[in-house]
Simulated assay, not measured.
Amino acid sequence: MRLVHHPVLCNYYVTYRCNATCSFCDIWEKPSPYVTLESVTQNLQHLKKLGVKVIDFTGGEPLLHRQIDQLVSLAKQHNFITTLTTNGLLYPKYAEKLKGKVDMLHFSLDSADKEEHDRLRGVKCFDFVMESIRIARNLGERPDILFTVFEHNTDQIEVIWRDICLPNKLVLILNPVFEYNAVQTGTKLSTQTLQKLSYWAKQKNIYLNEAFISLRQDGGNHTDKPVCRAGSSTIVISPDNKLVVPCYHLGTEAFNIENDLYTLYHSAPVQKLITMEGRLPACEGCTINCYMQPSFAVEMNKYWWKALPSTWKYTITKGTWKQLFT
Rank of each mutant, 00 (worst) to 15 (best):
Q203P: 00
V171L: 12
I206T: 01
W200F: 10
F178G: 01
W161I: 04
F126Y: 15
V159T: 00
Y180A: 11
E141R: 12
K202E: 15
T148F: 09
R142C: 15
S198Q: 14
V149Q: 13
D127A: 14
F147Q: 03
V171K: 02
R119S: 13
V149P: 09
N205K: 06
S132W: 10
E179T: 13
D163L: 08
V123T: 15
D127K: 11
F126H: 12
L174E: 07
D163P: 00
E158A: 11
V171D: 09
V123I: 13
N168F: 03
E210T: 15
T191Q: 13
L146C: 03
R134V: 09
L194E: 02
Q192V: 11
L139W: 08
R121E: 09
I133L: 13
V183L: 07
K124W: 03
I160L: 11
F128H: 12
L208E: 02
D163H: 07
V129S: 01
R142D: 13
D155C: 13
Y199D: 09
F128N: 04
P143F: 05
G140K: 09
Y207P: 08
I157R: 00
E179L: 03
M130G: 04
L166K: 07
A201Y: 04
V159M: 10
H152A: 11
L146E: 09
F147R: 12
T154C: 15
E131W: 01
R134Y: 12
N181K: 15
R162G: 06
P176E: 06
R137V: 14
T187D: 09
T148Y: 05
Y180C: 08
L120K: 12
N153R: 08
D155L: 12
Q195T: 06
R142I: 11
E158N: 07
R134C: 08
L172H: 08
V123D: 10
L120Q: 05
F150S: 03
K188A: 13
L174R: 06
I164E: 07
I157M: 05
R142Y: 11
F178D: 00
D118W: 05
N181Y: 11
Y199L: 06
I173V: 14
T185V: 15
V183M: 11
P143K: 07
G140I: 08
N175Q: 06
Q156E: 15
E131M: 10
F178W: 14
L170W: 00
P143V: 11
N205S: 14
R162A: 10
N205C: 06
I164Y: 12
A182T: 08
